[in-house]
Design a protein around this nucleic acid. Structure first.
Lengths: 225, 225
DNA sequence: GTTTTTTCTTACCCACGGGTAAGATATCAG
DNA sequence: CTGATATCTTACCCGTGGGTAAGAAAAAAC
């Protein structure tokens, strides 16, 4: 069990001094909050817990956030921001549909190992107000649409075997999203390893559709940007 | 399998009379509780909510369960029970590793559309006591091990292309588990349709590993038992 | 009918946690 | 140095929800 100063530290330092630096302090709150939300869930994390880790008291938090939910929503925003970045990058990155899907899986899997990224898929949307909920759902829907379009593109250009894009997208999204459930930052598997393995496995597929002459090469795919 | 009668209710009928029938009343509590847990999450579901749906009052629930957590744990137990059943069936069902994996995906996906099954993967383990948590984790670990063994079996018998069984199992498990997140009992896609599509997609794989002469046949795989 | 047992209700306790009020103290601009 | 402002604390409010006490009312046992 992670102790106070061991694995997740450095953020209480932001509040060591009373110097006026709202930006970094706000950031510190979000980082520790995200950490705790992932560890104990939003509902079981009290603002006292957050404050305690930062060596301050609960009301101090209200200088940086209007309420608890705003902290949660900000975590979602930072996470979806990361995802949106990579989506734009990939869309611009010319290539076959299959290549785009592979690039997506690789980058997305990596995001799922970052705190804010994990928050997006791991935290319970039900804790959000209806407005914030709608906002987050818009982001998510966008992601799903993009992935599906990559697949359709791949079917069109022949790089992907004909299939139902909706189901394929659900499969891939599920496989990658689930990473944020079992991934442990302190675990054995490094993030990039997971990402590249997933990119390979999911694009290559599991079944041997046609009997190969020899053993299929277990080539290491170069990690995409 | 267990078909939920109407959309949601019908369970309050169990408490319409004061006749002594603890078994069905207990069942009714579990069904409505599971329903609410999936709808609003465990944390946001109060025992008053559960009681209200059953047209009784909160303390009445304590005649059938020691506390709130016992209700939750029982949902987990019923769900894992369903999964264990299908696992045993498949292990006995002779066939190649790939066939076992396909059968697993099909049956498992179906379970993920049933309330108690969904509870197993959708609900937050953090709400369980450490004892119950350990029990549930044991079940889940077992499932993962079984799936992985099916894959290894398939690689050994040549029905599955060489790959890392751990990553493959994580991918498949993630894709199928994620169903319980987005599946809506009232939605368009029927459960069996999802299950068979997933079984096909995930075993067939997405990428075309070798250029086929013609269009790949989109054969309908017969729904496994 | 009478007694016993189960079932369920009304009324209550209390710990927890989000949020606020009001004031103390440090930082900064001048 | 001085006043203004941002920062943070102590003390408090109160709604919510899990859980209990004690007893009423219905069902079964006799």
């Amino acid at each position: 069990m992670p102790k106070d100063g061991a694995a997740a530290p450095s953020h209480w330092k932001a509040f060591a001094s009373r110097r006026r630096d709202p930006a970094t302090k706000r950031e510190a709150v979000l980082q520790t909050a995200a950490h705790l939300f992932l560890e104990k869930s939003y509902g079981r994390t009290s603002l006292n817990d957050v404050a305690e880790r930062l060596n301050i008291t609960k009301p101090a938090l209200y200088h940086y956030f209007r309420n608890k939910e705003e902290i949660l929503l900000e975590c979602y925003r930072l996470g979806t921001g990361l995802i949106e970045e990579i989506l734009n990058e990939i869309a611009a990155h010319c290539g076959t549909g299959l290549e785009k899907v592979a690039a997506f899986i690789y980058s997305y899997a990596n995001v799922m190992t970052v705190n804010f990224g994990r928050c997006v898929m791991r935290l319970d949307e039900g804790d959000l107000s209806s407005q914030a909920f709608a906002e987050v759902r818009t982001y998510k829907r966008k992601i799903d649409r993009r992935l599906r379009s990559f697949i359709e593109e791949g079917i069109a250009d022949g790089s992907i075997a004909p299939c139902d894009p909706k189901i394929a997208a659900f499969s891939i999204a599920g496989a990658v999203n689930w990473i944020c459930i079992w991934y442990e930052p302190e675990g054995e598997l490094p993030a990039e390893e997971i990402a590249s393995q997933f990119a390979r496995t999911l694009t290559q597929g599991l079944a041997r559709t046609t009997p190969n002459s020899g053993e299929r090469e277990v080539s290491r795919q170069e990690p995409l940007p």
